[in-house]
């Protein structure tokens, strides 16, 4: 029944970001449901990263609205949140995974501290429990627990990325923003990471907005797909439908340019 459908976790209406006369992204609208993964695909310059930064509150909007269903205060227009509330949201209910893991990690502290920081930030005061949780999460992202006290600089690129994911998931966020999470990694490492992400998303009922130029990532992870070109959304729909039967000329171009196995 329609009344049994959960409310969307996030609703975006007419989101526009302009830089003077240059269009970052224009008139983007969609809803994201709990447990749903949405991939935003396009080439560089398509506006997908601008869109992501607007959604996660890092860029102010020129026009439009982003509404989020918070745990405590119901549906909130993100533009009305104080900076304190926004920072708290980013540390607890949201995750942000950067393309370059160095941007999302504290390189000067150990892996364990990186994973435990969010817990300490929300008041966890038992060293043993913090370390235990950190160990648990390292296991979940397939990092050897023996490396808990090592600095991230000693990790491989793939491990750093997995560490970044663990760091974000430790507070069990409901929504994760990811910007090219597999960018810069070897193909085999990518495959392993995607597999892990797919497992985690299902296990934890995560919603995610993932920006990528790589359709293979979209195919593997996303329920829905949004194709962007020059700041506008040109096509949107269920992943398989869009990839198997693209309507828009640009989407057709994208799909055609992947080597089919």
């Amino acid at each position: 029944m329609i009344d049994d459908l959960p409310d969307p976790l996030m609703r975006v209406t007419g989101l526009t970001k302009l830089y003077g006369r240059y269009v970052g992204c224009r008139d983007v609208s969609f809803a994201l449901w709990p447990g749903e993964v949405l991939c935003v695909v396009g080439e560089s310059g398509s506006g997908k990263t601008t869109l992501l930064n607007c959604l996660s509150g890092q860029l102010p909007l020129t026009a439009g609205k982003v509404e989020y269903d918070t745990r405590i205060d119901g549906v909130v227009d993100l533009a009305t949140l104080s900076e304190a509330a926004r920072r708290l949201l980013r540390r607890t209910d949201w995750g942000v995974v950067h393309q370059n893991p160095r941007d999302g990690l504290r390189m000067a502290v150990s892996a364990g501290a990186n994973v435990g920081e969010r817990l300490m930030a929300v008041g966890e005061r038992h060293y043993g429990r913090i370390r235990g949780e950190a160990l648990d999460w390292l296991g979940r992202v397939e990092i050897d627990g023996g490396r808990i006290d090592d600095l991230p600089a000693t990790f491989s690129g793939g491990m750093q990325q997995r560490l970044q994911i663990a760091r974000n998931l430790v507070t069990r966020p409901r929504l994760v923003f990811m910007d090219e999470p597999t960018g810069g990694l070897d193909v085999s490492v990518q495959a392993r990471l995607l597999d892990l992400m797919r497992t985690l998303v299902t296990e934890l009922s995560l919603s995610a907005v993932i920006v990528t130029h790589d359709l293979a990532v979209a195919r593997l992870l996303a329920h829905r797909l949004m194709v962007m070109y020059r700041g506008e959304v040109v096509e949107t729909g269920l992943t398989d439908q869009v990839l198997d039967d693209p309507h828009h000329a640009y989407t057709q171009l994208l799909v055609a340019s992947i080597l089919q196995p």
Binding site: V109, A113, E117, R118, A121, I148
Partner: peptide, 15 residues
């Protein structure tokens, strides 16, 4: 936002 202070203490104990 004092999480960083406890991160420092955590590191001390870990090392």
């Amino acid at each position: 936002e004092y999480g960083l202070m406890h991160v420092k203490l955590y590191e001390d104990i870990a090392h």
